[in-house]
Design a binder for these strands. Structure first.
Lengths: 267, 267
DNA sequence: CTTGACCTTGACCCTGCGTCAGGGTTGCAC
DNA sequence: GTGCAACCCTGACGCAGGGTCAAGGTCAAG
């Protein structure tokens, strides 16, 4: 008669695994000797080897019992299903591999490459780090909501950014984010902003009013909050814009015109 | 401010997962409102999206924190290691697929094809099911001990089986396993067995005495037990064989000769 | 006031064991 | 007889990544 460790050795498993199989009911509990030790016979070794054979082939323990008792047909069906599961797990891991390969530290984490390019361009234009970070976070949020529309959306924003007037605006006022809330230059900035909005608004209408870039109201509010919390002049800037006929920031709306007027994320 | 379910929705995860990340320390616990509800800001959404991005790429949660804080170089190192793990998991599953594909119900479970062929041949020769099952179990045990030597070993056994004298022995005495322990035909059977052993022993010496098929003593004892427990005449047969100069069964030894005499698994 | 949708914490469930903790048993050497 | 190592036992916690109750508090609408 064999002790549990001899049994385990002959079958090439650990003692712990044998006890686990007992607990799962895969291997019947054998007789105990006078001191309570389990004592096994040869049949247990064979049964244990069979269990291991299935387990090592990736059969979940919960199905081992049924497979040990199955006829050819049931067995074949079960094998097909297990193979399907294994294929799915392999696909999943291959997708994971592809994704980790794309990952990199810094801005590009959780942001598609187009958006990274946009954010990099902002930095190039001299926009302060704090504002770039804010933009990046905002785009992370948008990308999570509209993952499929980031391509066209970023193309649009990048095009706006390369408009000479916009580029100039950025160059002239890189430090607007650092102004105090009552900075006297703010009204002039608001004027330039409104001029830009009105100049370029025709080009956006197609996308925006069509609702293709339809962000949920909550997300819009969230993006506004990011802006309001990150930039000291933001609250007063919004007031100045309202005085000039625009409400909101992320989704800018005309207030002296029909309410369904075009709108867009501000920069 | 956001509730936990709004936060979860914006980041595309379950509420449970958010709490899980709190428990793991990946996402800081936010302020609570007057009734104890968690209230989140936009930064939490961004952080949660970052966590999800890593988790969905197969990064284990235990490493997410470190990756969120890592610089480019640490990040790249970590990514390489995760990729290695994913590759290993894919390989493992591919091997599992290959193994399940080989599996089939019945004798072939836990037995290499050569051994299945041998067992099938026994059945063909008219050997009773009970004895075939015993043989199969014995070979399952042997295969678990000497997986790499099953090819040559089974070739040897199959060749023995096809010796005209052996085949005849089987045909003449298919029902020996069912004889009573005191069956009068047993001494004659023992004689024929000894004749066969002596006739064919030269062919085996090379393998057996070289210890190439070296089974552990415990396994030999186990295989003998299977034989003794399965076949009523086994105990007396062993006595008769000892009278004729052979001891054991699985590993047969000459007792009137030098002790290192050749030996082999009996059939 | 009730209803239904949220929210809270806490705790158990899954896989396949590894690993402790805290004992009892066996066999061998001295 | 005694000491030691190497077994054996049960029971429980741990791992990843949450799912799924349970039992109760909160909130807004009708």
């Amino acid at each position: 008669m064999l002790t549990i460790s001899q049994l385990a050795d002959y079958a090439g498993v650990t003692v712990r695994a044998v006890r686990h199989y007992h607990a799962k009911g895969l291997l019947p509990e054998p007789e105990r000797d006078h001191s309570g030790y389990r004592r096994y016979d040869a049949a247990a070794v064979v049964q244990l080897i069979r269990i291991r054979t299935l387990a090592e082939a990736g059969v979940p323990l919960s199905r081992v019992q049924e497979l040990l008792e199955a006829d050819e047909e049931q067995f074949a069906t079960a094998v097909r299903e297990i193979d399907r599961r294994l294929r799915a797990e392999i696909r999943e891991r291959q997708q994971h591999r592809a994704r980790v390969a794309q990952l990199a530290a810094g801005d590009s984490l959780a942001l598609p490459p187009e958006a990274v390019a946009y954010v990099d361009r902002l930095r190039e234009l001299g926009v302060p780090q704090r504002v770039v970070d804010m933009e990046r976070d905002a785009w992370i949020l948008v990308a999570a909501q509209l993952p499929d529309q980031m391509g066209p959306l970023m193309a649009l924003k990048s095009a706006q950014l390369e408009t000479p007037a916009v580029t100039e605006l950025y160059r002239d006022m890189v430090d607007v984010a650092d102004w105090d809330a009552d900075d006297p230059r703010l009204p002039a900035f608001a004027d330039r902003l409104v001029a830009l909005i009105e100049e370029s608004s025709e080009g956006w209408e197609d996308y925006e009013s069509a609702g293709e870039f339809a962000l949920d109201d909550g997300v819009v509010a969230l993006l506004d909050r990011i802006f309001l919390d990150s930039v000291p002049v933001a609250p007063r800037l919004l007031v100045l814009l309202e005085q000039r006929g625009y409400r909101g920031w992320t989704r800018l709306e005309r207030i002296d015109c029909p309410p369904e007027a075009p709108a867009s994320r501000g920069s």
